[in-house]
Simulated assay, not measured.
Amino acid sequence: MTSITNGLNNYAQYGAAYARTAGAQTSLAGILNATSDDVLPSASNAATQLTLSAAARAQLAGGSSKDYSAVISDSRAAIDKLYKAANVSAPYDASGKPTVDLSGLDRRALFAIASNAGGRFTEAEQTLAATNRIAQFNAALSPATQTAKLIGDYSTVYKAAASYLDGASSEEKATAIWQAERAAITKGLAATQSDPSKIPAGISNDPVAAYLARYPSGSATTTQDLGSVAKQARATLDDQAKQATAAGKLLVYDPARKTGQQADLSVLDNRALSAISLNKDDLFSQEEVFAAKRELDGRNRASILTALKQSQTSGNPADFSLGLLNAYSGMSAEERTATNWTPAFRDNAVQSYKATTSLLSMLKRG
């Protein structure tokens, strides 16, 4: 494959430290301190979505049990398939815009590419993988940062960062950078226990402090317009209907139906389900709208239950409100409308968190 190494605009400059140092990983804090916002994947600068097939994604999703050499080989094959589908030979075009979308690759695969595991990936491929990795980190911290602004408690951002880093593969955890950053986050968490209203300072290798310095109110998430999301959802459902017809069945949306092929709404994210539920362009039948609302309601209940379980596990009842606020902060405006998570709901959760925290503080002093 041809590697683009010269003349790249700011899209490809992002993550260049990964490419230049190959196996030597660059810290999240270092990248956040050295780059600008417009290099991140977004609706305006991302490649036309030429994503992996379900079979290809399944092959990549071997989890931590898959041998790392297989992860490297599968990642190489996945990129080559994307090139073939897009009729390109490199991840950036002459203007520096991405030609392929790596968002279908899991975190372990992106790490393999960004670190040039096995020497199988070009400099430009490492760069594109690095942009996706930092975008994942930003996405993990943004909801918690928005919540922190609401409740005045930055420990929630450090908890989100700890959860993100703990989800790394064993290969990533073995790097000195991961270990230094995880230690920094542990120190940051300890500091926020003393004063949660202040961002800890002076901690080396602290990616949270670097993130908050750049995005004090949380990083923006550039999304496709809802009309485009609705059209993609329509295409997904139409494709399922064609597959059902080919199998001699009718695509159905009622779980109680004993005949037909059940529509699989699990492949749609919450924003796509919201687009169907709101049905602003009248692209969907009432049956499809009802099914989307039912799926969203189920995911909502799961989100609430997760927040409740977290509070039970931690022994801190305030964590229930915290979980709800993080879920709210992670939603788009359309998702909030579709699920009826209103500003009043958010404000009640904030009041509940502050009241519970205040009571717990009084009990500790007593």
Results as ranks from 00 to 15, higher is better:
163 S>N: 06
77 A>N: 10
207 P>I: 02
83 Y>D: 04
264 D>Q: 04
217 S>F: 13
21 T>P: 00
243 Q>K: 13
275 A>Q: 05
145 T>S: 14
88 V>R: 14
298 G>I: 03
50 L>T: 12
74 D>A: 11
259 T>G: 10
314 S>I: 10
190 A>L: 15
11 Y>V: 14
223 T>C: 01
79 I>Q: 04
311 S>K: 12
167 G>N: 02
121 F>V: 02
365 R>P: 00
54 A>K: 10
259 T>C: 03
273 L>P: 15
196 P>S: 10
171 E>H: 08
75 S>F: 03
263 A>Y: 12
139 A>K: 04
156 T>C: 13
337 T>A: 08
114 A>Y: 07
61 A>P: 00
185 I>K: 02
43 A>P: 00
358 S>T: 14
208 V>A: 10
143 P>C: 06
186 T>Q: 05
100 V>L: 12
94 A>D: 14
188 G>Y: 09
343 P>L: 00
12 A>C: 14
199 I>A: 07
154 Y>M: 07
61 A>E: 12
133 R>Y: 08
70 A>N: 06
110 L>Q: 10
98 P>C: 01
302 A>S: 13
156 T>A: 15
88 V>M: 09
294 R>C: 07
218 G>R: 01
130 A>W: 05
200 P>W: 09
19 A>K: 00
302 A>C: 03
9 N>I: 03
78 A>P: 09
254 D>E: 06
285 S>W: 07
233 A>Q: 07
147 T>M: 10
16 A>Q: 13
110 L>V: 02
171 E>Q: 12
5 T>W: 06
12 A>Y: 14
342 T>R: 11
